[in-house]
Every structure is written in structure tokens, then in C-alpha cells.
Amino acid sequence: MPQPKGIGLVKGLGVTLKEMGRTMFPRQGVMKLVPSPTQGAVTVQYPHEKEAPAPRARGVIALKEENCTVCMLCARSCPDWCIYIEGHKEKAPPRRAGGKPRTVSALDRFDIDYALCMYCGICVEVCPFDALFWSPEYEYSELRIADLLHDKERLGEWMETVPDFEPYEAGSEAKPRKVPR
């Protein structure tokens, strides 16, 4: 549709001015006159205030050591092979009195190199014994790249930060899961 020249230019100025007003005076009522851009801006001043990531966010992988059976599925399915696992067999007392002693696999080493990790989540998905979980924590940057190799103690510490699984949307037939605590 033809419109007189200059209308578009004025409209553009209106858009930016409106946005400035919205950012500077976000409050309602009388308080609207008090400029408070820290509330109006959409940005988050990171070290001072933090955004809460979604509970499903893939931040860091937590390890529940007791559940791990050293099956190596995660290490094998990792697309860039950044999981290092070592274990040994050891005898454990029988479950029932008088039974045969069991052979269990004990974990010696479980390292994830976060410098290599692509955060795809395949390891968490393939784990058949619920030993790996996603935690939305994201603040674990290091000054040295070698420090990004988290060992099993470090990975175990993340376990506290793992949130509970959310309930599903209506119409879902997926089984609700629980985090072993």
C-alpha cells in the first residue's frame, strides 16, 4: 500500500523510544515515575544475579557411585570418548546368610573430561542402572584445561544438585522417574 514518505522513519523512531521508556520505567502506578532500568532490562547481570536454568538443562553430569556396575556402556557410547573407566572384581559377602560370596565390580576410576564432552547426554541415557544424572549446574569453569577432568569424587558431589524429574504434560504415557537419593 502506498504511504507518504517518512511515515516509516517516524514509526521506527517510535519503536526505539517506546522500548527505552519500557526499560527505564517498568513499574506500574505512581512508581512508574521512578526510573528503575535494572528491573526493566531483559539482561541479567551475571555474577551478581543468576538465571535459574530449566530443571532438565544439561549442565553437568552427576555420578551415583553405588549404582555403577562398571559395565562400560557409557564409555562405549560416548561420541567423543571422553569417559574413562577402570574397575576391578571383588568378593562381597553373600546376600543371605549361608549363601555363596558374590562377585561385584568395584569402581576404581570414573573420569569425565569436560574439555572434550559435547553434552549430548547419551551416556546418561544408556546407563541401565541409574548411575548417571544431569544437573543444571553450570559454574565449574577452570583456569587450567586439565582441571576440567572431573574424577568420581567430583562427579559424586554434583549428585546433590540433581533436581527431581518433572511431572509430564497431559496425554503423556512416559513413566515418571525418580532420582535415587
Binding site: E19, M20, V42
Partner: peptide, 13 residues
């Protein structure tokens, strides 16, 4: 500042 507000951010803080 003013330009940052136009872009709904805070500018240097």
C-alpha cells in the same frame, strides 16, 4: 545508557 535502554539492556554497570 540511553541507547542500551532502547535495546532493553543496561549498558555498563
Amino acid at each position: 545508557k540511553a541507547v542500551s535502554f532502547m535495546q532493553s539492556r543496561l549498558g555498563p554497570m
